[in-house]
Every structure is written in C-alpha cells, then in structure tokens.
Design a binder for these strands. Structure first.
Lengths: 199, 199
DNA sequence: CATGAATTGAGAGTAACTCTCAAAAGAGAG
DNA sequence: CTCTCTTTTGAGAGTTACTCTCAATTCATG
C-alpha cells in the first residue's frame, strides 16, 4: 500500500519513471528534428534515451505517440466540462476554452506545438491518426450540444454537428500549422464564426 | 505501342491483371470475413489468391487498401464535377450526387458496402485512414464552395466549411454502418439538413 | 519466331511491434 | 539493516507488414 504519500514527493520509483518518460520524449523530439520522423527508428530513440527498445514501448505504445500525445487535450476537456453548464452557447464555450488553455502557452511551447502539428499533417503515419485524436473529444462536445438541443448525445443530428465541428477544426489546424504569422486563437475564432452562421 | 486497341478487348495482359486483382480482392474479403481483419495475414491472402506476397503488394499498396478502396468515390467526384455548376446550392448538389450514385447500388453490393464500412470504423488500422480517405474529396468540395462564397479554395473559411462537411459525413457514416434499418440516402439527407441550418 | 517490355516469384532485408523470462531495484515490515 | 514482495527493466526470440533486387517467365509486336 503505497497510496499514503504526500503529493510533493511521489517516491523514488515514480520520479524515476517520470524522468525516463521525459528522456524518451526529448530524445524522440531531438532525433526527429535532426533526421526526420521516418528516418528515426525506435531503436535509435531508445538508445539515445539510454533505455532498451522494450522499455520504449512500455512508455509509448507506438512511435507515433511521441509526437501525437500532448498535455493540452485533457486540460481542454476539463475546462470544457467546467464551463459547459454556465449557460453559454457551444460556440461561446469553445471560444472561452481555447482562450483559457491554448491562450497562455509560453512562446517556446507554442513553437514546439506548431512543429508537432506540422509534422502531424505532413507525415502519413501521423496524419492517419489525426481524426482519431481529435474525435476522442467528440463525446464531451456531444454532451453539451445534445443538452442544448434536447437530444441524446448519440442522436444523428448531434453526431453530425459534433463531427462537423471536429472536421472544421482539423482542416483549420492544418492551415494554421503552415502559417507562422497566425495565432491559434485567431484561427479558431474565425472558424467558430463560420460554423456559427451555418454552412 | 500497345495503345491502339479497341476498348472492348484490352489484350490478354490487361485481362490477366484484372483477374489477378479481383482474385486478391475476393480472397481478402473472404478470409477477413472468416477470420477477422487482424488475424488475416497478407501471406494468407496471397496464397489464397495464388500469387506471391510480392505480387500482392504490386496490386495493393497496403493490406488496408483491400478494404478501404472502392469504386464509388471516383464516381461521386465525377458526378459532383458534372453538377457543380448547375446553379444548385452545395447542399442540393450533394443530395443529387448521393441519390445519383449511392442511390442505385444493388442490394448485395450495399451489404458489402456496409460490412466494409463497419470494418473501417471498428478496426484501428482502418479507422486511422478514414479522415484521409474522405478528405481526398475535400478539394472538389472546396472548389464549389469557394466559388459560391466568392473566395479562393484555400481560404480559411472555405476550409472550415468543407472540413465541417467531411467531419459530419464521417461521424454519420459510422452511425449508419451500425444500423441496418437505415439507408445511406436517409442518413445523408438528415445530415445535410442539419448542416444547412447551421451548427 | 525473334526481340523487347512488362509481370512475376524468390529471397534477403528492415522496422515496428509483441511476448516471455530472468535479473535488478525500489517499497515496506520487522 | 535486512528480508520479502512487487514493480520495472533488459535481453532475446518471434511475428508481420512492407521494400528491394534479380533472374525467370510471359505477353506484345514486327
């Protein structure tokens, strides 16, 4: 029973795991930046992070996950959950969530985020996972939109709406990833306006 | 110069290629129906079709393509191109295209189509390719919608709109694939109505 | 039928995973 | 501190999708 331990010191074992994970993550970023995604092998990443290939897969289920995974998604979902019953429209809620989360990321992290996003759209293996990645948040959207329309979350009209939402976001993120002069907030703002007034 | 030959008899070589392709396709369908997608190996399919594994890959770039590829997409694109300047709204054009193409497929082919679609949404490797598959038609959508809005096809508002379109279709096809009592036309119809009145 | 071009099979190679098992290392009890 | 119990790790073998090369076969054509 190792449950009763202060949050501040998660124990040596946990700290080591966190360090290993980060070592792998950073090795992946570095090698992929240097040599490209496809030219970088899992074995190389593992070697650079000083773990065995087997251990790599204990931390990242696939090579793709080193690029695809980020900390923003769960934060945005949480923010959405927090605000979805404030009485705002879905569009207004979305605006708020983006401002609250993607709004204040440090410039360095923004750069990293853009690089990762560009990779995601340009490397076939990563591009393949874009829909799945975005659509994991579909359920949360569906809840709110279903409520507002007075329909169950798996009603076809709700699905069409949330699917449309997500599709628009995917397209527009690709647009953003190739245009350094644009901020995420700007792009999402435009998108939401378009969706607001109908297709 | 083997170009000058009547359309009716494409030469032995071409006929043989067509037969080989179909043999592989059918072997793939059969084995995957029997044992499931992941449990079926390319080697098994090749053996069943009586070709070498190398030849399999000469006809299908990946195992996924045996399920994902179909003849409807290019037909729909062609139909879209034919009707897009008839003066109809994008929604009306879409309705027409669906009616004209997916409308009259034989019952047997409809069943096959539904089975393939269900597979595409349930097998991760196939699901991963759904967005890419649908979004190949995004460019054709974008042309018409850009024209109607008086915007270039790569304007962000056009992208948001077409992306929304495609996302809605993806979501709604999954819904359809699990409900044998619904026809494609019905489902698309509902979807288009939703999109028409805005999100 | 002879010659050139396309198609095929065989075989070796690569890279992303998966599984198993034994060694190593932290956690907790006494 | 030491003895267990549990978790984490590395090593190694195995599977599968896919790629490349090369020589043999097969069709097309003059």
């Amino acid at each position: 029973m190792a449950q009763n331990r202060p949050m501040s010191t998660p124990g040596l074992r946990e700290r080591k795991k966190a360090r290993t994970r980060q070592a792998i993550q950073e090795a992946a970023y570095r090698l992929i930046k240097e040599n490209g995604y496809e030219a970088t092998t899992v074995d190389q990443i593992a070697a650079a992070a000083e773990v065995s290939p087997a251990t790599f897969f204990r931390y990242f289920p696939t090579k793709e996950d080193t690029i695809i995974r980020d900390e923003y998604d769960p934060i945005m979902v949480e923010s959405w959950r927090k605000h979805m019953r404030d009485g705002r429209s879905p569009i207004a809620t979305a605006r708020l969530v983006v401002a609250e989360t993607l709004g204040h990321i440090s410039p360095a992290d923004q750069e990293l985020f853009r690089w990762r996003t560009r990779l995601m759209y340009s490397v076939p293996a990563l591009r393949a996972r874009v829909w799945d990645n975005f659509s994991q948040t579909q359920t949360v959207f569906a809840e709110l939109i279903g409520e507002q329309l007075g329909l169950p979350a798996n009603d076809i009209r709700v699905l069409a709406t949330t699917g449309g939402f997500i599709g628009a976001l995917i397209s527009v993120f690709e647009y953003w990833s190739d245009r350094p002069e644009l901020s995420v907030a700007e792009v999402i703002d435009t998108t939401l306006s378009v969706l607001e007034q109908g297709i």
